[in-house]
Design a protein around this nucleic acid. Structure first.
Length: 420
RNA sequence: GUGGGUAUAGCUCAGUCGGUUAGAGCGCCAGGUUGUGGCCCUGGAGGUCGUCGGUUCGAGCCCGAUUACCCACCCCA
């Protein structure tokens, strides 16, 4: 029986790991620059946390959660990153450390969906949450960080879609206006849209069916129904983005998948992703913290799929910053030299010089080939001649130059040559 | 859940009209003179052709079923 990774999951093999590390380290560095601190929460939470915050009718809650029972507890593998962050923020009273708390995370996310290009059952997200700031400058900062993140990854050609979904005061008015508009059209809408009408009428506006599109062309726009406060906030967000020189497209039909979003909603889209196009999705969630049992506290943040960022980088053939070759390969010939090479190898490693050797008793030629295959910068060659003179042959595999170095100076010499 | 596509060596793929020992490139291993990698040359290892059944004198190829993967719908990061 051969086992395979479960459907929708993937192994990240050693050859791919440098790409992952690049993305994660780029994000970490950026977050530090913007004043965000890392938080790590458990992979699973009590089911209720997600069920209550994401929305009873959301896709995540209705069909995508990996939920399991242990004893009389119902637990769920994290299907999104914001709710656990808020839970930890409240549980440990991080608000007491200052009025604004800025957190970031890098973690796996689990959703039971049908896998396809850019969509997996386990994927990984980087994300940020800015808690305690209602100011439009916070929205702009979050968006700016996302923008800089893509730039730092070598990603270009993305489009920032921006919308405001209002607040609990103005949104019901709009939803009612939209329902009133759609209701007489209902019999002519597609099956999906009839369902959407009941669950989330905003989604009808997003239907790909040409007949639906035509029918809803004159539908009321959410932006026209914003209350005065939401409208002012949205205008300020747009002004700050203009100030920062971050371009965007107003997208009145942009809807987020989770119920807790208020006011600003945004997605960075890119067409290098097949049918999936969102690489960063986020927005403001001013009611969420209170809903989780905290004092009324505003929040804004985003999540971004690492796999999707990597797919775009691959489509753009974005190069990885080259790391200088530092490895030393110890090659030997003969039993005595082999015996002498063991302590040498360990001395190198203890001196923080990356060092490798042959374990198969192969020919010197094969060992040199192996050194090259592994991308070693230097080869140390040790045979009877070197032993007799208490020296080691040092070959630079890039310049093809080699010279003899006294045994007692080899380690310090390589420390010098491989210093970063 | 619903459609479509694919399945042959570690990887990417050929495989003609159904015909005898199933191929290439890359990768891997070894050799090309006495102790030296990369290029080149030579050789080698590696495949129950996804699985099960059917048609046929004969199936990698045709038919059916099944499984897996991919793509798309839906929805999203």
């Amino acid at each position: 029986m051969r086992y395979q990774a479960p459907r929708g999951t993937h192994d990240v093999l050693p050859s791919e790991v440098p790409n992952w590390r690049f993305v994660e380290e780029t994000f970490r560095e950026l977050c530090a620059r913007y004043g965000y601190q890392e938080i790590r929460t458990p992979v699973f939470e009590v089911t209720e946390l997600f069920a209550r915050t994401s929305g009873e009718s959301s896709d995540i809650v209705t069909k995508q959660m990996y939920t399991f029972r242990v004893g009389d507890e119902s637990l769920t593998l994290r299907p999104e990153g914001t709710a656990p962050t808020i839970r930890a923020y409240l549980e440990h009273a991080l608000h007491a450390q200052g009025p604004v708390c800025k957190l970031f995370y890098i973690c796996p996310i689990f959703r039971h969906e049908a896998p396809q290009a850019g969509r997996y059952r386990q994927h990984h997200q980087v994300g940020i949450e800015c808690l305690g700031a209602a100011d439009a400058a916070a929205d702009a900062e979050v968006i700016a960080l996302g923008h800089d993140y893509l730039r730092a990854l070598g990603i270009t050609g993305e489009v920032l879609h921006l919308n405001s979904v209002g607040c609990p005061q103005c949104r019901p008015t709009y939803r009612q206006a939209l329902r009133d508009f759609l209701q007489p059209l209902l019999p002519r809408l597609c099956d999906d849209c009839q369902r959407r009408y009941a669950v989330n009428p905003l989604r009808v506006l997003d239907c790909k069916s040409t007949t639906c599109k035509a029918l809803v062309a004159d539908a009321p726009r959410g932006l026209d129904y914003l209350c005065a406060e939401c409208a002012a906030h949205f205008a300020q967000v747009r002004r700050w983005l203009d100030t920062l020189g971050i371009g965007y497209e107003l997208d009145p039909r942009l809807v987020r998948g989770l119920d807790y979003y208020t006011r600003t909603a945004f997605e960075f889209m890119h067409d290098g992703l097949g049918a999936q196009s969102t690489v960063i999705g986020g927005g403001r969630y001013d009611g969420l913290i209170e809903q989780c049992g905290g004092k009324p506290t505003p929040g804004v943040g985003f999540g971004s799929g690492i796999e999707r960022a990597l797919l775009i980088r691959a489509a753009l053939q974005a190069a990885l910053p080259a790391a200088p070759a530092r490895k030393v390969f110890v090659a030997t010939q003969g039993d005595a030299a082999r015996a002498a090479s063991i302590p040498l190898l360990y001395e190198l490693r203890r001196a923080k010089v990356p060092a490798e050797t042959d374990y198969l008793g192969r020919s010197l030629k094969a060992q040199m080939r192996e050194a090259h295959r592994q991308g070693a910068r230097f080869a140390l060659i040790l045979g009877d001649d070197e032993l007799a003179h208490n020296v080691v042959t040092l070959r630079d595999l890039q310049t093809h130059e080699q010279r003899v170095v006294p045994r007692e100076q080899v380690v310090s010499e390589l420390q010098r040559l491989t210093a970063v």
